[in-house]
Design a protein around this nucleic acid. Sequence first.
DNA 1: CGGCTGGCTTGAGATGTCCATAGCCAGGAC
DNA 2: GTCCTGGCTATGGACATCTCAAGCCAGCCG
Lengths: 162, 162
Amino acid sequence: MSVMTVQLAGRLARRGDVALGDRCAVDRTFQVVGNRTAMLLLREAFYGATRFEQLVKRVGVTEAVASQRLKELVAAGVLAKQPYREPGQRTRFEYVLTPAGHELVPVLLGLLQWGVRHLPDPTGQVAVTHDGCGAEVRAALRCADGHDVEEDEVVIRGDVAR
Amino acid sequence: MSVMTVQLAGRLARRGDVALGDRCAVDRTFQVVGNRTAMLLLREAFYGATRFEQLVKRVGVTEAVASQRLKELVAAGVLAKQPYREPGQRTRFEYVLTPAGHELVPVLLGLLQWGVRHLPDPTGQVAVTHDGCGAEVRAALRCADGHDVEEDEVVIRGDVAR
DNA sequence: CGGCTGGCTTGAGATGTCCATAGCCAGGAC
DNA sequence: GTCCTGGCTATGGACATCTCAAGCCAGCCG
C-alpha cells in the first residue's frame, strides 16, 4: 500500500502516466448517474415528483427504461422506494431522494446552470436564482470547515494498493 | 411567451405534468459532458494533462474515441485547442480548459467526491480535501452575492415560449 | 532519402441505452 | 366475477459509444 498525494492544479504529483488519487471514483459515480435518464429522474425527484407514472411522464421516457434506471438508483442509494397509501387505494410505492441523493443536488444544479449559461435554449430563457436575494446560483466547492475552496486549493489524496 | 416560476423543493409550481423552468438545460449539458470519456477527459484536463497522447493514456480510452470527444469538447467551448512548440519540435496542439471548462470543475469534483463517499473503492481509499485546513471538500451552491444557498432556496424561473 | 513519433482517421464488431409495442399482475370499483 | 388503473416486465430494433486494429500525414533525425 503506497500513499500518493495529488496536488492541483498544475503542480500535479503523478507516477508514470496513471491518474493517482482518484483512479475511478468518477467512473463509479458515472455508472449510476452518467446517463440521461438517471440524471433527469434525479432532476424530477428533486423537483418533487415521487410516483412512477409521474416520473415517466415528466422525464419523457418509456416505462421500461424508467423502471430499469429507478432500480439502479435505488440500488445505489440515491433514491428510496417507500410504501404509501392514499385513502381508498391500495399500497403503492413512491421514490424519494435519500440523504445521499440530496448530496447530488449541487451536481445536478451545476449541470443545469452550466447549460443555461453556455448552451442557451433559443426558444426560452431560464434563470437559476437564490430565493432571498435573486442573484444567480452556481455550483461551488466548500470544505467541511465552511471555507470556500478554490480550484487550486483542492488536494486529492489516494491510498492506492499496487 | 409565458413566465412561470418553479419554487423548490416540494412547493413546486407546475402546469400539467411538464417540467417548467428547466425543460432541457440538463439535457443540453449532458449532450456535451454526459458520457464517460468526456467527463474523464475533463478530469484529466483539470489534473493538468494537455497533450493528446497524455490524455489518451490517462483516460485509458482509444485514440479514436479521444479524438472524437475532444473535438466535441472544443466545439462546446469546454476545452481550447492551442498551438505550442517545444524547442526543436514542430508546432503541436494542446488542450486546455477554457473559463467555461473551469466552471464545470465543481460538478466534476462533486461527482468524484460523491463516488468517494458513497461508492467506495475496495482496493484503495481516496480523500478530497481543502489544502489549507484538511477538511473534506464537497460541491455546494452559492449565489453571485456570495450567500450559501440551500436546496429549498433555489428558484428556477423560466420564460418558456409555448 | 527512409524511419520514427505525435496526432490523428477509418472500419468492423461488441455493448449499452434508447424507443415502441405488448403483456402481466394486484387490488379496488362495479 | 369482470373491468380498470398503476406499476411494472418482455421483446425487437435503432442508434450511440466503446474496443481493436490498421493506416495516414507532417516533420525532425540520421
